[in-house]
Design a protein around this nucleic acid. Structure first.
Length: 302
RNA sequence: GGUGCCAUAGCUCAGAUGGUAGAGCAAUGGACUGAAAAUCCAUGUGUCCCCGGUUCGAUUCCUGGUGGCACCA
């Protein structure tokens, strides 16, 4: 197999961007970003997108490519990346995908089940049901429309239940009928490189990076997004906390502390996500030569 | 140098007439199929500063240390 997708993943702040530039430069290829927030063109300071010089050295995809007002999903990402990869593999045999959104990465690597699109009004309908009747209203509806999924889903997680309900209503079939649990085989080799640091070191970097973002004008960036604050894109670490600050709910110092804490917790959740994936080979970001050796060895192994 | 106060979880602190302890924050573990930086679940992690004494039993009371703070010299 001479088509290789190098997947570079790791928690926020671990140092993925620098490594991705090194890899892309070395293998002379593009970088596909797998980051659910860097994809929005209105956001850059709070999402820590690659800087101009990095963007100039290497061609990036899915960075600042859509608007916060656009609908997007891991499924769209899967489709668009696969289509892009087809083109990229015509010119070369290697591509790099780098990012921290575990679900986006899994969508590309394993595929997700084919489920019809839903009309946004249906999601709104069930969101309203949740507001009016709480989680119990959702449970009752789910028990009726999909008793199988009712026994499997986390009944305390309203987003999961709404997702199932909107599919049931759209398709007239139970949501659980669409779930195969099968992993798709891709026609390219996937090499997963995980970047890792000691917890203490990672948290220090995260805290420092938040300070840098503040110094770099994050507050203004958030303020300019005020009219979009209700959108999912702005329900992000670094943005929601400042909105609370603007509302007078919390002082500025507190907002900054919370951004740091929530970033740390996010990093923790990312690591939990990847902990079960034993196809990932883990490296310290500074051990770049080991990463090259591992990739070259894996590719030449055929 | 003298006097007084303090020493308990990662931090700030509470506490028991003596029966090995608990709040807030921080933290830790987990789940995850088109919102995923989202959403959801679970968890107290401890030589109660040290050596002795009293006591059936001391983190608690007492002597002496050590460290910190304040005031007086």
């Amino acid at each position: 197999m001479n088509k290789n997708l190098i997947v570079l993943l790791g928690p926020t702040g671990v140092g993925k961007t620098a490594v991705s530039i090194d890899l892309a430069t070395h293998y002379r290829c593009d970088v596909i970003s797998a980051d659910s927030r860097q994809i929005f063109r209105e956001l850059s300071i709070g999402t820590a997108v690659p800087d101009d010089s990095q963007m100039n050295i290497v061609r990036h995809h899915f960075i600042k490519s859509i608007s916060v007002t656009d609908y997007y999903s891991s499924s769209i990402f899967e489709r668009e990346v696969l289509s892009l990869l087809e083109k990229l593999f015509k010119d070369g045999h290697t591509a790099i995908m780098a990012g921290g959104s575990g679900m986006y990465i899994d969508a590309v690597c394993n595929g997700i089940d084919d489920i019809p699109d839903v009309d946004p009004s249906i999601r709104e309908k069930y969101s309203k049901l949740y507001l009016e009747q709480g989680i119990n209203g959702l449970r009752i509806a789910l028990k009726m429309l999909d008793p199988v999924h009712y026994t499997q889903v986390d009944l305390r997680n309203y987003k999961r239940i709404i997702r199932a309900l909107e599919i049931c209503e759209t398709t007239g079939k139970p949501y659980s009928a669409f779930l195969t649990g099968k992993k798709l085989k891709r026609d390219f080799r996937i090499i997963k490189i995980g970047l890792q640091r000691d917890r203490e070191e990672l948290y220090r970097r995260i805290n420092d990076r938040v300070d840098d973002m503040i110094a770099g004008g994050l507050e203004d960036e958030v303020r300019q997004m005020s009219e979009f604050r209700h959108l999912n894109a702005l329900n992000s670490v670094g943005y929601r906390e400042f909105f609370d600050c603007f509302d007078g709910k919390i002082p500025r110092d507190k907002a900054i502390e919370l951004i740091k804490r929530n970033s740390r917790r996010y990093a923790k959740r990312q690591m939990t996500w990847w902990a079960r994936d034993n196809s990932i080979r883990w490296f310290h970001p500074e051990n770049i030569s080991e990463i090259f050796m591992y990739i070259d060895k894996t590719i030449s192994a055929g």
